[in-house]
């Protein structure tokens, strides 16, 4: 697993380490959605029923871009029950993200339900470069 979940009081912390930003953002999505459901099972959704999702935004720095990414993913799930499972990052720099992807439609009657993630918090939030690439830590309110 390219991410780890750590404890924080009643909630969950997500720690991701990756060689590049693509890996960091992709693995963070896997970590977030594994808290919500069985993400690996959703990833096996047949291609023909997947929906197209697009994201395009800029931020002032890599941490804010990463925060925006997680908040965007959570919004897609919470409001539209869409869980992005394929990502094609057209542009991904520390300041800008442009992504075209495919999302599976979550059905609580068919898919595993784990936690309702309420929000991505700024509490002890950090994203930084390491000799081996990038690392991020974020607390998710459950």
């Amino acid at each position: 697993m390219a991410y780890e979940i750590f404890e924080h009081a009643a909630d969950a912390g997500l720690r991701v380490r990756a060689r590049d930003l693509n890996g960091l953002f992709r693995d963070a999505a896997a970590g977030l959605f594994d808290l919500v459901t069985d993400y690996a099972a959703l990833q096996k959704t047949p291609e023909e029923v997947l929906r197209t999702v697009e994201m395009n935004f800029r931020e002032e720095n890599a941490p804010e871009l990463f925060m925006h990414w997680l908040q965007e993913l959570l919004f897609f799930f919470s409001a539209r029950k869409l869980i992005p499972v394929r990502f094609d990052f057209i542009t991904l720099t520390p300041l800008m993200l442009k992504m075209k992807g495919k999302a599976a439609l979550f059905d609580p009657r068919r898919h595993v339900s784990r936690h309702e993630v309420k929000a991505v918090t700024h509490h002890r939030f950090r994203v930084f470069q390491t000799p081996g690439g990038w690392e991020a830590e974020v607390i998710l309110d459950i």
């Binding site: 009643a10 409001a79 339900s113 936690h115 309702e116 459950i142």
Partner: peptide, 18 residues
């Protein structure tokens, strides 16, 4: 609008967690 969209089908639902 995002808040309205998130809340659109959640009136009369208990939620999760505690």
């Amino acid at each position: 609008e995002r808040a309205y969209e998130r809340g659109a089908d959640q009136l009369g639902t208990l939620g999760s967690g505690n």
